[in-house]
């Protein structure tokens, strides 16, 4: 451990890990430092890497003054910071949300609904395919609340919960895997980069 970068990264890593014992001033210091640094980072990336090329550079190099319209609408977003002006921020919000809703309709229908339904139907020729169709229908019936879940509907919904439990169980297993991998990364840093215990 010779360089300043490793010392700083190690000290801050240990500050965060100290939370495992209990909350303490070192952890709290690191927590607030992280908030400041990450917000500062995002601010710089947004300004340098998005607002500069999309607005400032276009005006200065090609004289594209039309971008002043979205820039002005973007500035209206700052009205949210003052209660009496916050109504103005509805205008850019309305454009973003309305347009987003419009473009999402065909995309959702095609990618999430039609393609998934058609893929389920195509697999019906096999035993696995039948299980898939039963799984899809029963799971969907579990979320169908317009009719009371009793009789055949109730049994189907109950079957759906078993499929859901398989999904949640598998997701839990992978989540454990993910968290252990993150810990491996940090411990590898401490043991190898900071203390040189591993070659």
């Amino acid at each position: 451990m010779t360089d300043l970068a490793t010392i700083v990264a190690l000290a801050l890593t240990l500050c965060i890990l100290s939370f495992l014992y209990r909350e303490n001033p070192f952890y709290r210091f690191a927590e607030y430092l992280l908030v400041g640094v990450s917000v500062g980072y995002s601010t710089v990336v947004i300004c340098r890497n998005s607002i500069y090329p999309l607005v400032i550079e276009r005006i200065s190099s090609s004289g594209d003054i039309l971008v002043l319209i979205p820039a002005a609408l973007g500035l209206l977003m700052f009205a949210r910071l003052k209660r009496s002006w916050s109504g103005l921020s509805r205008l850019p919000l309305a454009l973003m949300i309305g347009f987003g809703a419009g473009v999402s309709i065909p995309a959702m229908l095609q990618a999430r609904v039609l393609k998934q339904v058609s893929s389920s139907m195509q697999s019906l020729a096999t035993l696995d395919g039948i299980v898939i169709v039963v799984g899809v229908i029963s799971t969907m019936s579990y979320f169908y609340f317009s009719r009371k879940q009793e009789g055949l509907n109730g049994r189907l919904a109950k079957l759906g919960t078993y499929f859901l439990m398989v999904f949640f169980g598998a997701t839990f297993g992978f989540t454990v895997m993910s968290r252990i991998s993150l810990l491996i990364g940090r411990l590898e840093f401490i043991l190898r980069d900071a203390f040189g215990l591993v070659s």
Binding site: M108, R112, Q116, V131, G135, V136, T139, F143, G160, F167
Partner: peptide
């Protein structure tokens, strides 16, 4: 198979819900 079919049902449900909300 089973895990995928449950997630697929969720996707279809969320897809229909999102279209309605939009």
């Amino acid at each position: 198979v089973p895990s995928m079919s449950a997630k697929r049902a969720l996707l279809i449900g969320i897809g229909l819900g999102s279209v309605t909300t939009a």
